[in-house]
Amino acid sequence: MGYLQAIITGIPMTLLVTVAGFTLGAIGGIPLALARRSRFAVLRIVARTVIEFLRGIPPIVWIFLIYFGIGTGAITISPLGAAIAAFGVISCAYMAEIYRGGLSAIPAGQWEASAALGMGHRDQLSKVVGPQVLRVSIPASATYAIGLLKDSSIAYTVGVQEILFNADMQAKQASDAIVPFLYAALVYVIITIPCAWAARSLDSGLRRKVAR
């Protein structure tokens, strides 16, 4: 049972990296998604390039780039900071693509009706289309967030004391190294199942209320 207790102490760090990274992405993805659909071709190309660039580099490389890149210079960054920043920038790209899909799912009639009512572009986005995009984005965002929770284990490579870090510490001292990792696997599953369940019930609840 000692293993499990040690591994559990890593849960807050795992959640912190996941939630902070996801939050940065959920916010940063908005301007990126809008730029992706901008009237101006230059902005569209820039946004697209940025997204491909952010997504094309593996998370572990991002963490190393940020941790060793920034951390060795004049500015220092903590392992936790580097992990959150890395998952934050990656999430921006993924969330932008999720929002973009959501935007294209909104019927043209919603834009037209709000335009016909004299609403400006900003009001159309913030009051009519945006809230609907967020709602249709819930399932894809939840799938992404659960993936992120598992990916956050990579943060252990720079020394963030999350679930895998603690499991690895235990494994190094254990007679049978597999056991702590099995516990780690169990803990990840126990966290992800309620997350998936909560996302599903949120989605179906909203669907019942506002079904088209």
């Binding site: 009639g109 919603q110 037209e112 009706a113 709000s114 016909a116 009512l117 004299g118 009519v128 809230p131």
Partner: peptide, 20 residues
């Protein structure tokens, strides 16, 4: 554009109410 549209109310075939 806003001034122009304000004076002309529009009703669509597909209603286009805001579902949210």
């Amino acid at each position: 554009l806003v001034a122009h549209r304000r004076v002309a109310g529009m009703v669509f075939q597909s209603f286009n109410l805001f579902p949210h």
